[in-house]
Every structure is written in structure tokens, then in C-alpha cells.
């Protein structure tokens, strides 16, 4: 049982990290950024490229190298997120919601198949692998690298929450979520704040990408699709636009999958997890913590 819970929480923390970007962007400009999962993929690939160029340096101190690459990748994917927003979303900000949704799908395909052209269709294998000994915690098999990755996720999530609730930046974001026109009148540089939102969300997805690369080892140009879908689901379960709700949603989805596999079998897992989503939405359409409609980021 404790193994099931641990498996669920570990996978869930990845979902949560990716889901946060989805949720933030939706909260601020009501856009479902379908390219978000692909930023996760882009993060994994840019991390791969950086580790490749560092070459011998990586071998001597792989954990430090991975950490440096994590930071650099966050900056790189963050900037790509900003560029995507500038090119694909900003010119359409006044357009109907459906056009935005379509450009988001377009941006997603452009990223996937652009990466395919640059890096090739074959899956790549990370040069650095996180290997560690396993501990026994309350009957669950837990490895050190899992603990390390989860700690990084938790730190990033807490930092994000502080940023949004305690800083001027965060206040500006929350204000835009409430009423962008009024913000503009009050002298807030809306474009700049939205850019920053994309930067932060994309950087988190990129971080998750590097961590997945280092932990699982295999990356490919379509890896963002499924996790994008899962992250979206997690965001909806938790209450899209709500940061703590999204984190909770990610963990809950991870647990649902883990328990679903256990109780109804591997082939029924997605039916179980997504069936639960449907049930959940009919009973509680705003998501777990979605009641704070007045203040969504």
C-alpha cells in the first residue's frame, strides 16, 4: 500500500510541476496553452544538448552538472515560452477564443516536428543517469534520486506560490487575471506581466523535462504530448487557474493512476483515472480548490 502511495506521489509531482504552467497561463489570459507539454519536451532536449556539449565535465561530477543544466534549461525554456507567446499568442489576444486554441495546437505541432527535424525522430538517451540505492520507508521502496527530484519539485512549487502571493509581480499577475483592461488603465504593463507568466510557467515545465530526462533516461520528440494531457487533467481536477489546487490535482492524478493500476489492472488504469475525472467534474465542476473564482492566477 505504501508503495502505491509513494509511486503515485512521485509521478504526481511531475504532473503537478508541468500542470502549474498550464494553470498559470489559463488563470491569467484564459488560454489553454497546448504547447505547454512540448516545452517540457524542449526542456528535456535542451538539457540533453547542454550535457552533450559539457562532455567530460559531466562524467566527473554528474549531480552538479545536472543541477547547473537544470538552471540553464529553465532559463532557455522560459525564454522559448516568451517567444512563443510573442509570436503565436499576443497578436491574437483580441481574437475569438477558438483562434487562440488553434494557434496553441499549431505551436505544439511546430515545436514537436521542429525538434524532430533538428534532433531526429529516434529517442535519445541522457548521458547522465541518476542512480542511487534504495531505502525502505514504511514498506515502500524509495530511492535517493526520487527524494532529490521530489525535493526540487517541492522547492520550485513553494517558490512559485510565494512569488504569486507575496510579491508585486504576483499581485500584478493576479490583477490581470481579474481584469486586464482595468490593469492597463492603472498603469500595469500587461504585456510584460504576461510575458513573465509565460517565462515562469515554461521554466517549470523545462525543469520537469530535465528531471524526467535524468531520471528515466529516454527522451523523444513526442514525449510532451501525454504529459501535457495529464497535466491538463491535473489542472482541471485541482481547479484550473488555482495554484495550490493544481499542485493537489497533480498529486491526486498520480495517486489515481497508481491505485487504478493496482485495483483494476494496467489496461484499465486510464479508464479509471479519467472516468474519475468525469465523475469529479459533474459533481464539482470548478475542481478541488476552484471555489476561489474571484482570485485566479
Amino acid at each position: 500500500m505504501s508503495q502505491l502511495i509513494w509511486n503515485g506521489l512521485f509521478v504526481g509531482s511531475f504532473y503537478a510541476l508541468v500542470a502549474l504552467g498550464y494553470s498559470m497561463v489559463y488563470g491569467v489570459i484564459k488560454l489553454l496553452n497546448f504547447a505547454h507539454g512540448d516545452l517540457y519536451m524542449l526542456g528535456a532536449f535542451s538539457g540533453f544538448a547542454m550535457l552533450g556539449t559539457m562532455g567530460g565535465l559531466v562524467k566527473s561530477s554528474s549531480l552538479v552538472a545536472l543541477f547547473v543544466v537544470l538552471i540553464l534549461t529553465m532559463v532557455a525554456t522560459g525564454l522559448s515560452g516568451v517567444v512563443i507567446e510573442r509570436i503565436a499568442y499576443r497578436p491574437l489576444r483580441g481574437a475569438p477564443r477558438l483562434s487562440l486554441l488553434l494557434t496553441a495546437v499549431g505551436a505544439s505541432f511546430a515545436l514537436e516536428y521542429g525538434t524532430r527535424i533538428v534532433a531526429g525522430p529516434n529517442p535519445k538517451v541522457y548521458p547522465v543517469r541518476l542512480d542511487g540505492t534504495a531505502l525502505n520507508v514504511l514498506g515502500a521502496r524509495v530511492t535517493w534520486q526520487q527524494i532529490a527530484l521530489m525535493s526540487v519539485s517541492v522547492v520550485l512549487m513553494v517558490a512559485l506560490n510565494v512569488l504569486i502571493t507575496r510579491t508585486r509581480q504576483g499581485r500584478a499577475m493576479r490583477a490581470i487575471a481579474l481584469d486586464p483592461k482595468a490593469c492597463l488603465l492603472m498603469g500595469i504593463d500587461v504585456d510584460k506581466v504576461i510575458s513573465r507568466t509565460f517565462f515562469i510557467g515554461s521554466a517549470l515545465a523545462g525543469a520537469a523535462g530535465v528531471m524526467a530526462g535524468g531520471y528515466y533516461g529516454k527522451i523523444d520528440f513526442l514525449m510532451g504530448f501525454i504529459i501535457g494531457l495529464k497535466a491538463f487533467t491535473a489542472a482541471v481536477i485541482g481547479g484550473i487557474g488555482n495554484i495550490p489546487g493544481t499542485m493537489l490535482g497533480g498529486l491526486l492524478l498520480g495517486l489515481l493512476e497508481s491505485f487504478g493500476t493496482h485495483f483494476v489492472g494496467g489496461q484499465w488504469r486510464d479508464v479509471f483515472a479519467f472516468g474519475f475525472l468525469i465523475l469529479f467534474l459533474t459533481v464539482r465542476p470548478t475542481g478541488l480548490l476552484g471555489e476561489r473564482v474571484t482570485e485566479r492566477v
Binding site: I226, H262, G265
Partner: peptide, 13 residues
């Protein structure tokens, strides 16, 4: 499910 990264739940099973 093909295409995923984490199969720990299946493996536990």
C-alpha cells in the same frame, strides 16, 4: 500504456 516514462505502478503490480 505506451509512450509514458513512469511504469512504476505496473511494475509494482
Amino acid at each position: 500504456t505506451p509512450g509514458e516514462s513512469d511504469y512504476s505502478a505496473n511494475i509494482t503490480n
